Simulated scan of single mutants.
Amino acid sequence: MGYPPLQGEGDRAQRGGGGVPRIPRPEVVTARALRRRMSYPEVLLWQRLRGQATGVKFRKQHPIGPYVVDFYCASARLVIEVDGVGHDGCQVERDELRDGFLRENGYRVLRVRADDVTRDMAAVVAAIVSCAARPLHHASHGPPPRAGEDI
């Protein structure tokens, strides 16, 4: 004969409990979908950035606030955006709003043209790693300015 189940362990625990299923934020759902259908230049760049081959860790299609950025380096608070043919016309205005939001929240944004990724990958990766290696703020300069104070 076995022992009776402990507190919280019963028939329901064996079936997976009875909790409420988690519903991810819309940005997370979007990011997961974008990871599955990255553009060709994004895939090429990700192959070079992934797995800390560059000495810096990157995430792909990472949600930040209401946006999903192409690549993100958390240690440098650096956002990498790959701009392709779709970044013409009204897309430029949306990109400016997005970049403004990111900068106001302490992120640096580096935009890379998709043509440059396919043409000279080594130079693009070198520029990204160089930018990620430079810290956002030097401690010797005092605390960083708050939004609007640097004007």
Rank of each mutant, 00 (worst) to 15 (best):
D99F: 02
F101G: 01
Q61P: 01
I23P: 00
V112P: 03
R111Q: 10
P4M: 14
A132P: 06
V79G: 06
Y107I: 04
G142R: 01
Q61I: 05
D83T: 04
A53E: 15
I64S: 12
D99L: 01
R50M: 02
Y72L: 02
Q7Y: 15
A31P: 06
M38K: 07
S39A: 11
I23V: 12
V112K: 00
Y107R: 14
T54H: 00
E81P: 03
A133R: 15
R146T: 11
Y40S: 04
Y67R: 03
R35P: 09
V125D: 03
H137P: 05
E104K: 15
V129W: 13
G65W: 10
A114M: 09
P41W: 11
P24Y: 10
G100R: 11
Y107E: 12
G16M: 12
A132Y: 01
F58R: 00
V69L: 07
Q14E: 13
R94C: 01
G18P: 01
P41A: 14
M121R: 07
M38Y: 06
H62K: 04
A133H: 08
H138P: 00
P66D: 04
G84M: 05
E42I: 05
V20D: 02
E93F: 11
R50Y: 01
P135H: 03
V124G: 05
R98P: 02
E93P: 00
H137Y: 10
S140K: 13
A123P: 06
D95C: 08
C131L: 09
R32C: 11
L78A: 08
P145K: 04
P4V: 12
W46C: 07
Q47L: 10
G84S: 10
R113M: 07
P143G: 06
P26A: 15
Q52H: 13
H138R: 15
P24G: 07
M1L: 09
Y72P: 02
V117G: 08
R50F: 01
G16S: 10
P63K: 05
D120M: 02
C131V: 09
G65Q: 13
R22W: 12
E149C: 14
A123T: 05
R77T: 09
G16A: 03
V20S: 13
R113K: 07
P26I: 12
D88T: 05
R103P: 05
E104N: 15
G84C: 10
A133Q: 13
P41H: 12
G100K: 00
R119W: 12
A114Y: 04
E81S: 00
R36C: 02
V69C: 12
S39K: 05
G51Y: 06
V29A: 09
V85K: 11
Q14Y: 10
A126K: 15
A114E: 04
P41I: 13
D120K: 01
R25M: 12
V28M: 11
G18S: 14
P135F: 03
A127T: 08
Q52W: 07
M121N: 04
I151D: 14
D150T: 10
R12N: 14
T54A: 09
